[in-house]
Every structure is written in structure tokens, then in C-alpha cells.
């Protein structure tokens, strides 16, 4: 009887679990449909078509020919170098700057903190086109703000074509990317600093730890998961830098601001070489995955220490 009761309870539990599981899957279903339809299927299609000479008129299997061509394509190599330069400069700069701003504004009055958060977040919520138009005006060779200030202060004799000079164009792009990328990390870091256990900070201070030691030994490990997220997200965003290039330089001058994302767009939408563009997309995805995995590994190791 006892056993039967137990069995009865077990059966009921199983039925409940089944029902809950079914409900959970039903709730997940809409997101799953979107994920499969808009992420998984396009990824598979991208991978498959990267082995084809896929254009508006052709669809012919070519094996690894697109990949071979890619690594012999000087524009792709240039775009790859530019993309890596953007990532290598922008990611540390964004992370360090946003951490510094957060630590400075975190202790101040709540109203002032909110004000600064709004200021730094503004470029994030402003449309990319609007941001690009304003920057384009500031960089304008003839009527731009930068040339006006620099020439008025005697720093330059001749106006500089900031976006039209190979020496400056990529750095201008990185600067704009930087200003549009710091908003979210600052908000996240301020929130993360608020979650650091204050009793541990106070204990360290009682034990005579300096401000730097308190930050480095207590706060830094505590905000490491946030740092990891920020680094990964900023890396992915930097690798996928496209809109600014499209709006400001079209990859010029002389391919000095071409990025892989822009080159994919150019090959696929301007020259209708979808297969070749997809092959570049696959390589970009692999590079991003490798970078992200490395970052996970390194930051987890740092966190364990």
C-alpha cells in the first residue's frame, strides 16, 4: 500500500514535471523559432554557399576556391589587418576608459552619477546615421570643427582631410567607434561596482589596504564577469564595424578603412558575389569565436587568481 502510494506520488510528480517541461518548451518555442530561422539556418546556408560560386546568375560548386581566393586577395588582407587594428585598439581602450569613468563616477552623488551615465550613454541611443553625420561635419576638410580649431590655434597650416587621408582615416573611425561603444560598459561597470560586497571592502580598509590594493584585490575580481562580458561584446562589435565605414569612407581612401564586414557587403551587394562574401563571413565568424574563447580563458584564469 505504502509502495503503491509512493508509486502514485512518483507518477504524479512525473506527470507534473512533464507538464512543466512541456510548458517551458512551449514558452521557449517562439524564441527558438526565431533563433533557428534567423540564426541557425542562415549560418548553415552561409557555410554551405561559401563552397559555391554563388552569384545572381550562377550556383556552381567550387570547393575551397573562395577561401583560396580570399587569402590571395590583397583587399581582403588589408581589410583583415584594418579589422584587427580596430579590435586591438578599441577593445582595451573602451574597457579601460569605461572602468576608469565608472570608478570615478560611482562614489559621487546619485544625481550626478545619473547625469554622467546619461551623457556617456547618449551616443549609444542616438542613431548611427545621426552620429555619423555629425562626425562627418566635424571632420570636414573645409568647414569642419577640427580643422577650424587646429588652424585657429596655429597647430596646422593646411586643412586636413581627416576622412580622406590614409594616415588619419582609420583613427577617425576608431575614435567614433570608441565614443559610441563606451556607454554600455560604463552603465554595466557602475552597476557591477554597486554589487561588490561592501563589508569586504571595509574589512580590507580596516586591515590597512590602500585604495589601489582594495580595488585590485577586492573589487576587480568581483567585477570580472562584467569585464568578461564587456570585452567579448566590444570585441564582437569592433569586428563587425560596418555602418561607420559605409556612411563615412566607403572603405577608402585606397582601402585604408576597409573592414571585413564592409568588404563582405561590397562583394555580396555591389558585385553580387554571394558565395565569396559568405566565405569571408565564415572566416570572420571563426576569428571572432577564437578571440572570444581566448578572452574567456584569459579572464577566467585572472578571476581564479
Amino acid at each position: 500500500m505504502k509502495k503503491n502510494t509512493k508509486n502514485g506520488v512518483t507518477k504524479r510528480s512525473r506527470a507534473l514535471v512533464m507538464r512543466e517541461t512541456r510548458s517551458a518548451y512551449l514558452f521557449l518555442l517562439p524564441a527558438l523559432i526565431f533563433f533557428v530561422g534567423f540564426i541557425v539556418v542562415p549560418m548553415v546556408m552561409c557555410l554551405v554557399t561559401s563552397f559555391f560560386n554563388y552569384t545572381m546568375t550562377d550556383f556552381e560548386f567550387v570547393g575551397f576556391a573562395n577561401y583560396v581566393e580570399m587569402f590571395n586577395d590583397p583587399v581582403f588582407i588589408k581589410a583583415l589587418k584594418n579589422t584587427i587594428l580596430i579590435v586591438v585598439v578599441a577593445v582595451p581602450a573602451v574597457t579601460v576608459f569605461s572602468l576608469w569613468v565608472s570608478t570615478v563616477i560611482y562614489p559621487i552623488h546619485a544625481a550626478s552619477r545619473s547625469f554622467f551615465r546619461c551623457v556617456f550613454y547618449l551616443p549609444v541611443v542616438t542613431g548611427t546615421v545621426a552620429v555619423a553625420v555629425v562626425w562627418k561635419w566635424m571632420f570636414n576638410k573645409y568647414t569642419g570643427l577640427f580643422n577650424y580649431v587646429l588652424s585657429e590655434t596655429g597647430v596646422i597650416d593646411q586643412n586636413i582631410s581627416w576622412l580622406g587621408d590614409e594616415k588619419f582615416a582609420i583613427w577617425c573611425i576608431i575614435l567614433i567607434l570608441f565614443t559610441t561603444s563606451i556607454g554600455q560598459p560604463i552603465v554595466l561597470y557602475v552597476a557591477a561596482l554597486g554589487n561588490v560586497d561592501n563589508s569586504m571592502v571595509e574589512a580590507a580598509q580596516v586591515d590597512g589596504a590602500t585604495s589601489f590594493q582594495t580595488f585590485w584585490k577586492i573589487k576587480w575580481p568581483a567585477i570580472m564577469p562584467t569585464t568578461l562580458y564587456i570585452i567579448v561584446i566590444t570585441t564582437i562589435n569592433s569586428f563587425q564595424c560596418y555602418a561607420l565605414i559605409q556612411l563615412l569612407t566607403s572603405g577608402g581612401p585606397n582601402h585604408s578603412t576597409d573592414t571585413i564586414m564592409y568588404y563582405i557587403y561590397y562583394e555580396a551587394f555591389k558585385l553580387y558575389r554571394y558565395g565569396y562574401g559568405n566565405a569571408m563571413g565564415v572566416v570572420l565568424a571563426i576569428i571572432i569565436a577564437v578571440f572570444s574563447a581566448l578572452q574567456f580563458k584569459l579572464t577566467r584564469a585572472g578571476s581564479a587568481e
Binding site: K141, S161, L163, G164, D165, L248, P253, N254
Partner: peptide, 19 residues
């Protein structure tokens, strides 16, 4: 010459009287 400008930019400079 300006490698940072397209026709729309040049037209605006002309309309402004800059060029």
C-alpha cells in the same frame, strides 16, 4: 581633391559658396 567627399558634399560646398 578630397578623398573624404562625394558629390553631395561637393555640391553643398558649392551651394555654401565655399568653392
Amino acid at each position: 581633391y578630397d578623398a573624404g567627399a562625394q558629390a553631395a558634399d561637393e555640391l553643398q560646398l558649392f551651394a555654401n559658396g565655399t568653392i
